[in-house]
């Protein structure tokens, strides 16, 4: 008979216990926290886990909770099946091949009859026990069972990035229901068509991005209704939003006292007409001056866009902005920080 090794962990000084717990795989750490209140409290006291953040994805058949270290790649996670199985599955790329299926987990105490309830309990436990933020929350509405479409709110917890995706237009009320409890610290990503009369002031976040399907519904009125300081629209359609709208948006800022707005990016999906420079005749345009501003500005947290060939314009209060016209995009950047440090960021190529 094999004798299990025995090691009196709690007889060690706390520093050593912490050092050992830092070396635990996240699954083992959580299993450890399930042993007793004292174990859970000890895990809560460990401050320097390499597990930086938690992502939550909800799509047509499951709610996934993914544990992330540095970078975007996820290493392991749980999923709760929405197909009526009272089960929780775990996956660990470190142990299994990437293509292998998730494996059924037997040791987790969160399971209830309702998988969404199980997931919510798991998320609450994780954020409380590991003391890590929810970084990204993605809701893919397509094919989501009706009963789970109506009860999304509990998952809308404080997160850094929120993505809402759907192939077809969602009812305004349905989006309103989702947004009313949303507390996004960073950005909202919209990848679902919006009704032209949707009240965009309901988007409460620092920045907003519209991806392909969402971007195709962005019109002048939607753009002008946004209150974010960073607005990125990828693959908009020229028949719905034009270069003139971009310049008018700039002009609104130019004649305002707004000291928070930072970035507008419009990238067209279809070929657009060449940018008509006459649209900027009303402004005094300056060339790049290295004493005035940096040669590149930051886009999102991870990118830098070179803009030495941009057109610089000064507002009456002395704040500088740059308009940059590339083959596919129009950029408008306000130099709130003229020499923002963007070293180490990837260069934005569009």
């Amino acid at each position: 008979m094999r004798i299990e090794p025995k090691f009196p962990l709690f007889k060690l000084p706390f520093l050593c216990i912490e050092c050992a717990l830092l070396e635990f795989h996240v699954f083992d750490l959580l299993t450890f926290s399930f042993v007793s209140k004292k174990c859970k409290n000890t895990v809560k006291l460990v401050k320097k886990h390499c597990w930086k953040k938690i992502n939550i994805y909800k799509d047509f058949n499951k709610i996934s909770i993914k544990f992330l270290q540095d970078g975007d790649a996820w290493d392991c996670g749980w999923f709760f099946s929405l197909n009526g199985h009272r089960e929780l599955f775990t996956r660990d790329i470190g142990f299994l091949s990437v293509n292998s299926d998730w494996i059924n987990s037997k040791t987790y105490p969160f399971l209830s009859e309702d998988p969404q309830e199980s997931a919510i309990r798991a998320i609450e436990y994780l954020t409380n026990c590991l003391n890590r933020p929810i970084y990204e929350c993605r809701i893919f509405m397509d094919n989501l069972p009706v009963r789970y479409r109506d009860s999304l709110v509990p998952l809308m917890i404080h997160c850094e990035v929120f993505l809402l995706a759907n192939d077809t237009v969602l009812e305004n009320d349905e989006i309103t229901e989702i947004l009313k409890n949303l507390r996004v610290r960073g950005g909202i990503i919209i990848n679902t068509p919006l009704n032209h009369n949707f009240d965009t002031s309901q988007f409460k976040s620092e920045r907003i991005s519209f991806k392909t399907i969402g971007a195709a519904s962005v019109t002048r009125s939607i753009l002008f209704g946004l209150q974010q300081n960073e607005i990125l629209v990828f693959n908009c359609i020229y028949s719905k939003i034009r270069a003139e709208d971009f310049v008018e948006f700039f002009d609104r800022w130019y004649n305002s006292e707004d000291k928070k707005f930072k970035n507008l990016l419009l990238k067209w999906k279809d070929a657009r007409e060449p940018f008509n420079m006459n649209l900027l005749n009303a402004y005094e345009i300056h060339k790049y001056d290295s004493r005035r501003r940096a040669p590149a500005f930051g886009v999102l947290q991870w990118f830098r866009k070179k803009c030495e060939d941009g057109m610089d314009i000064m507002r009456k209060d002395g704040l500088w902005a740059t308009i940059l016209n590339t083959r596919e995009c129009l950029y408008f950047h306000v130099w709130l920080e003229p020499f923002e440090d963007t070293t180490g960021r990837k260069t934005w190529l569009n």
Partner: peptide, 11 residues
């Protein structure tokens, strides 16, 4: 499992 951890670490 939690039960095994309890035995291994004398928790």
């Amino acid at each position: 499992t939690p039960a095994q951890l309890r035995r291994v670490y004398l928790l």
